[in-house]
Amino acid sequence: MKKTILFVYLVICLFGYLTLNVVAQTPSASASSSPTVVVDKNIQQLKDKIANKVSEIRKKNNKAISGFVLSNDGNKMIINNNGEENQVKFDDTLTKYFKITGAQKKEIKANDVKKNDYAIVSGVMADNIITANVVLIDENFLVDSGKIIEVNKDSFNIKVSTSDKTIYSLDVETNTKQFMLNIKLLEMEKVGFSKIKEGDTVHFVVKKTGEEKNNNYSAIKILIIPQEYFIK
């Protein structure tokens, strides 16, 4: 009987020991996995750091150029800005293409970029070739100012001489935004074509298509500084 009790006692002790061991091993198992988690975290941090550094370098070397498209074969294009030609390389995985219409942008494909489109390219420039991150197809605007030297009230046209002696012929259309400086309040106010006089100064915005003749443009908006401002 004593032997049986001793045997049972030993079995219970062994069972208890094993149970304790298993319980004790459970946290140790999680402890053994923690170095892996730490290593994973370090790798992730390193990856983030590298990604940030690459992004910083990209931003630093990022340049933007613009011009009218001369040619596009789907892998590269050549753009021309006032006689200066630039080669643009496309990256299949990186380059994105958008067409801007007003405040909206629509994603397009490389082959949608056509000759004579006005392209704005952002990317990394190396050896005079820009690898495009983004290609935006937009409209080209000319912003300038000068003195009005002629007002044609029949054709609603004004001729403007700029500081570099360029003469522009501007058609003032019904949708042209026309503003004039109020010389007392120094604020802009809407005016009609009849208020425009020779000798006034005009600030203007026109759309350039590259196909204009005789520097004649349709004005998008004009801002008149009346000559009275300069003699008050």
């Binding site: 933007a64 801007i100 952002s122 080209n140 605007f141 300038d144 100012s145 500081s163 600030h203 003699i231």
Partner: peptide, 29 residues
């Protein structure tokens, strides 16, 4: 969005001076 042509003209108070101009192109990408 895209290219922004900006013209800045300063008309001095002393009218005998010529206006001064600056023209820049900046990009919003």
């Amino acid at each position: 969005l895209g290219e922004n042509s900006i013209k800045i003209v300063v008309y001095p108070k002393e009218k005998q001076f010529r206006p001064q101009e600056k023209f820049i192109k900046v990009y919003f990408i």
